[in-house]
Design a protein around this nucleic acid. Structure first.
Lengths: 342, 342
DNA sequence: TTGAAAGCGCTAACAC
DNA sequence: GTGTTAGCGCTTTCAA
């Protein structure tokens, strides 16, 4: 049967079909216990026979309750957010809450639009990436009167709750490990994305730690768009051609790092002896590379789960709102940072 | 200011703040043209000052119009669906419609739940992956009275519209190319996923074409879970150890194919001379591999865009409902299938 | 355990 | 160009 234009079924239709009041039908369909088994049977049979699907719009308007959780992320294309979403989805499973995703493409004005659209559905809570938002976005979130959880990053001021890691600290930690391993002429390869604040903070933490050790970045290389793996190769070739004396390459993400790694191995570069490499994220794909790229786990799945639990009112502590959960990323030296001198 | 428990603003609040009737405020906020500029200004100023966010629940109930498009996909973890979502998101941009995503993890009963939840919000249309659905799911979709677009696959019976490729034909085409190149002892490596019908159909098409050429699969190897790249390596090693005489490996997806490719190159296997390789999907990541894996583009982005246009009522033809768009995947021999004898 | 009445916040339709 | 009225389909509240 092709979709038709006839109106969809209402409670009244079910009520008429089974001779029970609308109110009681409503009770049955909401799994309330104060209905006799006999009535329940009748109602369920009728609803099923008709193929009734409740209208949540009307229900939500009447009850002032919406089982939707708004999730706003900048991108779906780099494997990091899908994993966060997986964590959210799993944690929400069984709570009766349903995640609803929006994507901003790292554009603040798009974030504003998406938030406006989604908040106008009066969700139970909002989970969104990052701490940097436009003033109108912040204003909307602050006055929504629902739990707001900012995720991924803890370096900044939160609107309500926050779950993430310190990217600044992550950058510092990687710098420390690199310096400890004896590398001194360090290059950075990253994306041209002014609105990727987390990458920016990692780099800031990284350079700060270098400064404190009396070092500076020897060269940098940026890219935008295209296959990250391929770009990683090209950037690596470019930066090494320009500055052959580099002894370490720090990549802003694992994918370009993996590309660089493949290029180095193919070109007979001694990794990690002559040249050390490191990325960021702890992507699964690194497990299949010829040797393991040094990286730092961004706790993506965990972040999603914790954030979802806060919205669901299942936060670990009993505190309502204002939670601050800082996770600690695990540093993995892999096979591309040589063992520190001792 | 932390989220408070005070009620959210209504039209009435804006109305009182600017001394204009609720109805006219509503008109302004819906960008209708039949309002005087002066009134419009007043209203917008008041709404902005208060931080009013309209309640779409009430609006949708009153107008019987919902600007949501339900999108249901089996997974976000393999890079293929994120790209489809990107296509949908872009095509919907500017139409006033908003995509809302649900994930099923390849589980039919989960698909049923997600559909039920989402249909109860009375979306404008539904885009969902695949043609295989449970009876209750089909029933819900059929009686929803809205455009339903099944995507990715055209091999089967559609509920309403369908946009995709023939995976059966894709499998056959790859088999033909492999046979034409002179390979004869062919192995298959894939996932243990009974509900991944598209992978199943590709394999069916593939083996059919082999049969017709008097050939059979010489060996098969399956995996589940874990890093696909790593699994690709492990499976490749395992199948070649068990059946060393294989001269071709057909992978059910590019990720395990890429893993296999890396393993072969590291182990000094002559690709594509001694051993040919092919995957499926046309993933961007292949561009960064040492040599290009043969693959077939699944037209993911295009599929998303076309499907979204159908829901938005912008289908290429004027037909309402029942569209059938079969795209043709591009075969790319890459560097891992030797040039056919001539 | 069941039913009747009121109303959630907005918009369609119509009047002015 | 602006206001009034009714009602979308459900749930809350209260009465039976």
């Amino acid at each position: 049967m092709p979709p038709s234009t006839r109106r969809t079924l209402t409670l009244r239709d079910v009520s008429e079909a089974c001779g029970v009041s609308e109110m009681t039908v409503s009770r049955v369909l909401r799994n309330r216990t104060d209905v006799s088994p006999a009535t329940r049977e009748k109602v369920l049979a009728a609803a099923k026979a008709l193929g009734y699907v409740p209208n949540k719009i009307a229900g939500a308007l009447a009850s002032q309750r919406v089982n939707l959780v708004t999730v706003v992320v900048p991108s779906l294309s780099n494997m990091v957010f899908p994993e966060v979403l997986g964590g959210i989805s799993d944690a929400l499973d069984g709570t009766g809450l349903q995640p609803v995703f929006g994507v901003t493409n790292y554009r603040p004005e798009r974030e504003e639009n998406v938030l406006y659209e989604m908040l106008s559905w009066r969700p139970t809570g909002v989970i969104l990436a990052g701490l940097e938002h436009s003033d109108p976005s912040r204003a909307m979130l602050e006055s929504a009167g629902i739990p707001i959880v900012e995720i991924m990053d803890v370096d900044g001021e939160a609107i309500d709750s926050v779950v993430g890691i310190s990217h600044r600290r992550a950058g510092r930690a990687m710098a420390a490990a690199i310096i400890a391993a004896g590398y001194r002429r360090i290059g950075f390869l990253g994306t041209k994305m002014p609105d990727d604040h987390r990458a920016r903070k990692r780099l800031e933490g990284f350079t700060e730690a270098l400064h404190e050790a009396g070092l500076e970045l020897a060269d940098t290389e940026y890219y935008a768009g295209g296959s990250a793996l391929l770009k990683g190769r090209q950037m690596t070739e470019a930066i090494l051609k320009r500055t052959p004396e580099l002894d370490f390459l720090y990549y802003s993400n694992d994918m370009i790092g993996a590309g660089g790694l493949l290029w180095c191995l193919e070109n007979g570069i001694d990794v990690p002896g002559t040249l050390g490499l490191a990325g960021f994220n702890g992507l699964e794909i690194l497990d299949g590379m010829p040797i393991r790229l040094a990286t730092m786990d961004a706790c993506r799945r965990d972040i999603g789960e914790r954030a979802a639990r806060i919205v669901a009112g299942m936060g670990d502590d009993g505190v309502i709102g204002g939670a601050r959960i800082e996770l600690t990323p695990r540093l993995d030296l892999g096979d591309t940072i040589r063992t520190p001198d001792r």
